[in-house]
Simulated scan of single mutants.
Amino acid sequence: MAQTAEVTTPADPAPGPGRDPKAGRADHSLLRTILKKTPPYALIAPALIFLAVILLWPIAQMVWNSLHGYTIRHLSPAGPDPEWNDFEHYIRLLSDPGFWSILRNTVLVCVLMVGITMVLGTLVGILLHKLPQWFSTVVAVGMMLAWATPAMSASLVFRWLFLPGRGLVNHVLESLPDWLVGSGWTDYNWFLEPLSLFSVLITVIVWQSFPFVAVSVLAGLKSIPNELYEAARMDGAGGWRSFWNITLPMLRPLFSLILVLQIIWDLRVFTQLYVLANSFQNKDVYLLSYYIYQQGFNASPPNYGMGSAIAVVMTVMILIVTAYYLRIMIRQGETR
Score class of each variant (00 low, 15 high):
128 L>I: 06
97 P>V: 01
163 L>G: 07
8 T>G: 04
139 V>W: 08
172 V>T: 02
194 P>E: 01
20 D>P: 07
65 N>W: 11
284 D>G: 09
70 Y>E: 13
100 W>V: 08
258 I>Y: 01
135 F>Q: 02
49 I>S: 13
305 G>L: 03
25 R>Q: 10
79 G>P: 02
75 L>F: 10
57 W>Q: 14
154 A>Y: 00
53 V>K: 11
136 S>T: 07
105 N>G: 04
308 S>E: 06
319 L>K: 06
226 N>E: 10
206 V>K: 10
100 W>H: 06
163 L>H: 12
59 I>Q: 09
231 A>I: 06
177 P>L: 00
7 V>T: 11
127 L>R: 10
146 A>Y: 10
167 G>E: 00
67 L>Q: 10
54 I>H: 07
210 F>R: 03
156 L>H: 02
198 F>S: 02
201 L>V: 12
129 H>I: 00
34 I>K: 07
149 T>S: 12
124 V>H: 02
95 S>P: 03
137 T>H: 08
130 K>F: 03
149 T>L: 10
3 Q>K: 11
203 T>K: 09
310 I>V: 13
222 K>M: 06
318 I>T: 03
303 N>R: 03
108 L>M: 14
16 G>L: 08
51 L>R: 05
273 L>T: 05
143 M>Q: 08
149 T>A: 13
243 F>P: 02
121 G>H: 01
138 V>N: 05
151 A>L: 13
20 D>C: 09
282 N>G: 08
145 L>V: 08
195 L>T: 05
225 P>F: 13
